Simulated scan of single mutants.
Amino acid sequence: MPDERILMGVVGRPHGVRGLVHVHSYTAEPADLPTYGALLDDSGRRWTLVWRGDGVAEMRDEQGRPLPDRNAAEKLVNTRLSVERSRLPKTEDDEYYLADLVGLAVMSAEGATLGRVTAVHDYGAGASLEIAGEGQPILLPFTRACVPSVDITAGRVIAVLPEEVVVATDAPTTAAGPDQHPA
């Protein structure tokens, strides 16, 4: 089973001088992030947040104390906020959390093994899968065109690699220097 915590958001840069922070929410509706209750950081500290503006929140520690100032807010930049998986709604048969994809085998439409999903990234323009196999990891957009099938029960995804993506093959037989191309 995937990690028992699901990433729900990340603390961004401070906002002003009174301890407020920008928070990037990964929930379907960003405003819903506080409804999950206490959020855990990677060291297990519990935080609650109250939205104070569009994407701007007041963070409160376990004792209910808000961050006192900008310096305290700066120390939380890039803090990952998670919840225990058991606090999230159950998924429908054809639904899953992105965290469920990590560890799945990645197969081509022809049945060739391409590797395993090692991470799911989302930098704001849509999710991408990091796939480790032979050679360098591949970053694949998590779109229907590139990932037409996800089967959590079978433990695999089907991937259609764009033509620009080259998977590892045997090394070329012609040696070339650093400024030369093989013939």
Rank of each mutant, 00 (worst) to 15 (best):
M1R: 12
L7G: 07
M8N: 03
P14Y: 03
R18I: 12
L20G: 09
H22G: 08
A28H: 10
A31Y: 07
L33I: 12
D41N: 14
D42F: 05
G44K: 08
R45Y: 06
R45I: 07
W47T: 06
V50W: 00
V50A: 11
W51M: 10
W51V: 05
R52M: 15
G53M: 06
A57T: 02
M59P: 03
D61H: 00
R65G: 10
P66E: 02
R70H: 09
A72Y: 04
L76M: 07
N78H: 12
N78C: 08
L81W: 04
L81D: 13
E84A: 13
R87D: 03
P89L: 12
P89V: 12
K90D: 01
Y96T: 03
D100W: 00
V102M: 02
V102A: 02
L104V: 04
M107Y: 05
S108Y: 03
E110N: 10
E110W: 01
G111S: 06
L114P: 05
T118H: 11
H121R: 05
G126T: 13
A127M: 09
S128C: 13
L129H: 03
E130C: 13
E130V: 13
E130W: 04
G133N: 06
P137R: 09
I138W: 01
L139S: 11
L140T: 02
A145R: 07
P148L: 01
P148K: 01
S149Y: 08
V150D: 00
G155T: 15
R156V: 07
I158H: 02
L161W: 03
L161Y: 01
E163V: 15
A171T: 08
T173A: 10
A176D: 04
D179L: 09
P182M: 09
P182H: 12
